[in-house]
Simulated scan of single mutants.
Amino acid sequence: MNKIKVLFLCSRNSARSQMAQAFLKKYGNDKFEAYSAGLEASEIHPLTIKVMEEKGISMSEQYSKSLDIYLNDRFGFLITVCSKAEKECPFFPGVSIRLYWPFDDPAAAKGSEEEQLEVFRKVRDQIEKKVIDFVENTDKYSNIKDNFRV
């Protein structure tokens, strides 16, 4: 069975899209090939790494990437996970289905490290739930053409 390529896009590829990519690798590896990028690349936020490790997921293989490296690729899904990416990337060539999953930016959290961690955990758990639902309900997307699969 061919896997469906999924690109998660956010503003900096430091938290939300990285979490979504990691969760799709965990829950949908038999059906999907997961990628992530940002409108601008930055470093993966240290608290992203920490909260994902709490779920037993290592981020050591992931790194921040700019959207530019994927402009000539084809994806079954482009999933924007922040309003900035949704607004600033109104069109992306080579995508079969586009979805918008708006999540708060945990990197914008203020306060003590523990207060920031709580925000990261909340967003992480929301993303995990959304990814699980996506994996479990992909049958409704059976119209993805073979040339959008790997």
Rank of each mutant, 00 (worst) to 15 (best):
Ala85Phe: 07
Thr48Leu: 02
Ile69Arg: 12
Asp68Asn: 15
Leu71Arg: 14
Lys87Met: 07
Pro46Gly: 04
Ser83Thr: 12
Glu53Ala: 08
Thr48Ser: 03
Glu40Val: 10
Ser42Trp: 06
Leu78Asn: 13
Tyr70Ile: 11
Ser60Cys: 00
Ser58Met: 11
Glu43Ser: 12
Glu53Thr: 02
Leu67Asp: 03
Lys87Tyr: 08
Met59Trp: 06
Lys55Tyr: 04
Leu47Lys: 07
Gly56Cys: 03
Tyr63Ile: 07
Ser42Pro: 03
Asp73Gly: 01
Asp73Met: 11
Val81Phe: 07
Thr48His: 00
Ala41His: 01
Lys50Gly: 00
Val51Gln: 00
Asn72Pro: 02
Cys82Ala: 06
Ser83Tyr: 08
Ala85Pro: 09
Glu40Thr: 10
Ile44Gly: 06
Asp73Leu: 05
Ser64Lys: 04
Tyr63Thr: 13
Val51Tyr: 01
Ile69Asn: 10
Glu43Asp: 14
Ile69His: 08
Tyr63Leu: 08
Ser64Glu: 09
His45Phe: 01
Val81Tyr: 09
Lys50Pro: 01
Ile57Arg: 02
Leu78Gln: 13
Gln62Tyr: 11
Asp68Thr: 14
Glu43Ala: 12
Leu47Thr: 00
Ile44Trp: 09
Glu40Pro: 01
Glu61Pro: 02
Arg74Ile: 09
Ser42Thr: 15
Leu47Met: 12
Ser42Leu: 09
Tyr63Phe: 14
Gly56Asp: 03
